[in-house]
Amino acid sequence: MSIRLENVFYIYGKGTKEETCALKKINLTIEKNEFVGIIGHTGSGKSTLLRLLNGLERATEGSVYYNGKNIYDKDFSMKTLRGKVGLVFQYPEHQLFEETVIKDVQFGPANMGMTPLETELFAFQALKDVGIGEELIDVSPFLLSGGQKRRVALAGVLAMKPEVLALDEPVAGLDPEGKENIFALLKRLQKERDLTILFVSHSMEDIAEYADRVIVMNQGEIVLDGEPHKVFRYQKELGQIGLDVPVSAKIANSLREKGFAIPGDCITVDETADAVIRWYQDRKRGAV
């Protein structure tokens, strides 16, 4: 599995006076089993980018390749692509519609043309994966709590057996416990189901904590792309486009500026705390 974007442009309202370029010359490759966080301001093009990956939006210029095949070729099946690249929207309320949870989760696989047996099997599996217990499968999805709705919506996409999961702000509005649960679930899916995961987020801390790779977007362009420890070294550059680094990185950076012997790749609470503790213990040992 790999996704490659080549010179992709996406322009809204072409030819009108509201013409805006949502994506500018995007070149990007996503490899199998990556866990990618995409960050940027509202309107930086990150949601549009996600929608290009499963063909929901069509690039105005440039090509998108899935496993080396151009998805805009005539003989390429968009429907199959939608099943392979599962897109989870921010608000579960936008997709839940069936009478029961299980029926709703079956909607995707049934659309993909799977047999009734597969459909049912995959739906059960998906619900089990996201931690929705049997007692809830015959309940109306509208009676669930916010966190549960999000899991069911996620299951509705997982049941199509995607290879890639692309999520638009999967934890926005959830309380800390709900947030932690969703990320733990995504990490588990990446490992156990061999999924490639992309998520859009506004939280630098979440990206530092969970992503293996971060893509920073600004005004339709990719400005930074790489391993979070490397990307978050560019505190000044990120600041110029109005983005912060994680609080932990900020602390580590300003300590280093003050002359503390702290490595330059502390971006999470644990890393910064451990580095400071090491510094403290070294100093104590030195004093003794």
Binding site: L56, F97, F107, N111
Partner: peptide, 30 residues
């Protein structure tokens, strides 16, 4: 909503008038 359902393979374009009406259900309910 239409995009969210299309991401789950919903098809709003093909089929006869009755099928198309039925395919709008996943949009109308939410």
């Amino acid at each position: 909503i239409m995009k969210a359902q299309a991401a789950r393979g919903a098809d709003f374009e093909s089929g006869n008038a009755f099928q198309r009406m039925k395919s709008m259900l996943p949009v109308l309910v939410p």
